[in-house]
Structure formats: C-alpha cells, structure tokens
Design a protein around this nucleic acid. Structure first.
Length: 434
DNA sequence: TCTGGGGTCCTAGGACCC
DNA sequence: TCTGGGGTCCTAGGACCC
C-alpha cells in the first residue's frame, strides 16, 4: 500500500501560517514576474478563479472581493516543504514527489492502516501540529490509485481529508466517481481524446485493453497507467535519501520584466542564468556534461509565426563539469547559434543535463580531452567563489563579464511586487510579535 | 500594457559501430 | 534492383506532472 500526502493549496497555506489575516480571504499566489496564478485559496476558487489564469484578467475581480495577490516566495515554501517532509518521514519510508507532495511506502504496515484513525489521519495530524500546514491523504495499493484517493479526499469534505481504498468495492466506487481528466497521467490532450471515444470515468479507463491503451495513451506509459488503476503496481517507491531529490537535469529560466531586443541585454540575462545554474549544480555536488540554451519570443503574440522558442544543445567536449567559466565559454557559442537580430525576446533559459555526482569514481580517460579554457585550479576557484558568496551575499563576487549582484536593476529583471518576507530563512525577516 | 518555472518519461530518426 | 541485425549516442519533439 502507498499513501499520497499533499499540502492543501500549499503556497497559500504557507503564507497563512505567518499571516493569519489572510485566513478566510480570497488569496492568489502569482508566478515569477507576477504574471499568472500558480496557487489559490478555496475562497478565490469559489469566485471562479483558476490556476494558470493571467493576473491581469482577475485583478479587478480580486480587488472587488477584497482579495489579496502575493508574489511567490520560494524561500518560504521550500523551507516549509522541508519541515513537512521531515514530519512525514517519521511515519514511513518516503519519496518526495514535489514541493508539496510525498508518497509513503506502507508495505508491511497494513494493520496500522486499519487501526482506528490509521496512519493517514495520524500523519495529517502530526504535520498540522508541527508546521501549521493542512494536508490531504489518499491510501491505496498503487501510486495511481493513491493519487485518485487523494483527489477524492479533497473533493468530498465528509471524508475529512483522508480516503483509504483497501477493498475491491471501495476501489470500484472511487473510480466510478473519478472523471478521466482527474486521473494522474491524463492531461488535456488525452482527456479530450478519451472523452471523444466514450471513456469518461476512471472506471471505464481501467477497463480498456492493452492494445487500446498503448495506441491512445502514448505507448507503454498508458498501459502502465491502466494496470495501476486496476490495482497492479507498476511503480515502486523511489526513496528520497536524507530528504532530498536525486535529479537528472537542472535548469534556470526566467521571463524578462520586458521584451528585449539588444544582443547585450539578452546575453546579459543568459550569462547570468548560466552563472546561477552553475551555482545550483555545485551546491548539489554535481557536474553536467550536456548544456542547452534556449531563447523564446512572446508565445501569446498573434503575429507570431513558427515556434515561440529555439533550443541549442551541446555535449561538452571535455566531459562533465561544474565550472562557471567553461559553461560560459560553451554557452556563448550556443547563444551565437540562436541569436537572430530584430527579434523581441521575452524569456531565456539554461538547462544542464547528464548530471553526475562529483564524487563518482573517475572513468579512465583513454583519449586526451579537447582543450577547453584551462581548468587547472578551477575547482578550488569555484569553491572559493561559492564560499565568499555564501558568507557575504549572493553575487557579491562573480565573473568579469557578469552584471554584479545577480542582475539587480538589469533590463531583464523580473517583477515581484508583493513578495512576503522570508520568515524562516532570513534573520532580518523573522516575525516579531509585539 | 500585463500569460511561470522546474521537472519526468517516451518515441523516433539519423549517425555510427560491430 | 538487390542490399542484416543489433546496439549506442545524439537530437528533437511531444505528452505529462506539480
């Protein structure tokens, strides 16, 4: 059996822990650049606001209803997430699935699931008591069914946030009540196609054959999904060691505060993003051997023809690295391949792929690596750079071509007008009760 | 005027190798 | 006109997740 635990309107809940005045108020949390809604409270949902809508469309509605919009504060959410995960990990082996969701492995704990209250209610109570965060819990024999149970636990208040699917009849009842578009792994495209073929509920989806599933739901993924709905596990727990996630790629991208046309401005943004991505890479003790850069134009522009974005990718000739200067060197080459004068760019990003731990055993070098910018003494230099910045503030020391202090006041700087303080991670932002 | 960011997995074709 | 089988790597793209 698996449990899926997730935070209810997680970002809003994090804000409310430190700002009780937001209790009962329609609250929306905005994306970077204050562009669109990424999380919202039940009160905001009741007024018809939905995740993903652009802020300018709901600004008036929110003001009219005395609602509150906040910029997203990932320093706060990330720290609160860590607190929640540490509580959950005390109950069972854990896989952290996203910032506000975790799977718990309950194999061998079946008797505890059945006990009065059960592990779901227990974990939920614990997280609330220790962090102030409300959660929902779904328990079932497969991950997909646990997600389904969680979904229904949220939808029906009488379940009080916990649903256990531990018998055939409970599974059937749940799947009959679940729409196909609410199944984990069925997105917009698939939902539309399924509905057109007369498959409207999760129960109907669980009844399709293997060939059908492979044909209409993206191959082997679709077939696994159907099996999981039937109660046959196809995915095990991927345990998160010491509360962190093992990742295969890492990226840093931002929408600019305004469209940019000048080479220097766009390269200024990309080089800054590269520096940040390299910092993240070193902070998690990894090296990357594939580098991608992408540039995007405004994807909502009706004049736009062709794809909004272009990507350039390179396998680094000297092998895995976490060196800012090497990444900048090759990043500049990739940028040159993408750059087209006369375009108004709205967004850029950097992706580091093929991540390996820096501590891994070194493979025997059979051939001399291609000469890149000289790497002698570089790991030490990078380490020194990170230590100085950790002590004196991010971006205090950087490379010569970069904009100081990480782009503060730069032309690409994102908007973030209503950010709450970093209550839990900055001493100056500590909440004071008078 | 104003529309996020960071991930995953799978497929498929071409180059290249044995 | 005929012209294998199997494998890897690389790249691009499409679907999905939160």
């Amino acid at each position: 059996m698996f449990a899926l635990v997730d935070g209810t309107n997680f970002y809003v809940s994090c804000e409310r822990v430190f700002q009780p005045r937001l209790e009962g108020v329609p609250v929306v949390i905005l994306s970077n650049n204050d562009g669109s809604v990424v999380s919202l409270s039940a009160e905001a949902k009741a007024y018809g606001i939905r995740r993903g809508v652009p802020y300018f469309e709901i600004r008036e509605l929110l003001r009219h209803r005395q609602g509150q919009a906040l910029s997203s504060n990932y320093a706060l959410y990330g720290d609160m997430s860590g607190r929640m995960m540490r509580r959950l990990a005390a109950h069972a082996p854990i896989e952290i699935y996203s910032i506000d969701e975790a799977f718990l492995d309950l194999h061998g704990m079946e008797r505890y699931i059945q006990a009065p209250g059960g592990i779901g209610r227990d974990a939920k109570r614990d997280v609330l008591a220790c962090t102030g965060l409300p959660t929902c819990v779904g328990v079932a024999p497969t991950k997909t069914l646990a997600k389904a149970a969680n979904r229904l636990a949220k939808k029906y208040p009488e379940l009080q946030g916990v649903l256990v699917l531990d018998t055939e009849s409970r599974r059937e009842r749940a799947l009959r009540a679940l729409l196909v578009e609410d199944v984990w792994g069925v997105g917009r495209q698939y939902a539309l196609a399924l509905q057109q073929k007369g498959v409207a509920t999760a129960w109907q989806l669980a009844g399709v054959g293997e060939a059908w599933a492979r044909k209409h739901l993206g191959g082997v993924v679709g077939w696994r999904l159907v099996q999981e709905l039937r109660g046959q596990p196809c995915q095990g727990l991927l345990p998160s060691e010491d509360g962190t996630l093992r990742r295969q790629s890492l990226s840093y991208s931002r929408t600019f505060g305004q469209p940019l046309q000048l080479f220097d401005a766009v390269w200024g943004a990309v080089s800054t993003y590269l520096i940040k991505a390299a910092e993240k890479l070193r902070a998690q003790g990894d090296e990357a051997h594939i580098l991608s850069i992408y540039l995007s134009k405004n994807r909502f522009d009706p004049q736009l023809q062709g794809p909004a974005g272009r990507t350039a990718t390179l396998t680094l000739p000297m092998g895995p690295t976490a060196d800012t200067l090497q990444l900048l060197h090759y990043g500049r080459q990739l940028f040159g391949r993408l750059w087209e004068p006369g375009n108004a760019y709205t967004k850029a990003g950097v992706v580091l792929d093929g991540l390996e731990s820096r501590e891994r055993p070194r493979q025997l070098q059979l051939f001399a690596p291609e000469p890149g910018p000289t790497p002698k003494g570089r790991p030490e230099l990078m380490q020194c750079l990170d230590q100085v910045n950790a002590r004196f503030g991010r971006g205090k020391v950087t490379v010569g071509c970069a904009v100081p202090s990480g782009g503060e006041g730069a032309p690409w700087q994102s908007k973030s007008q209503w950010r709450s303080p970093a209550f839990t991670t900055r001493l100056e932002d500590l909440l004071l009760i008078n």
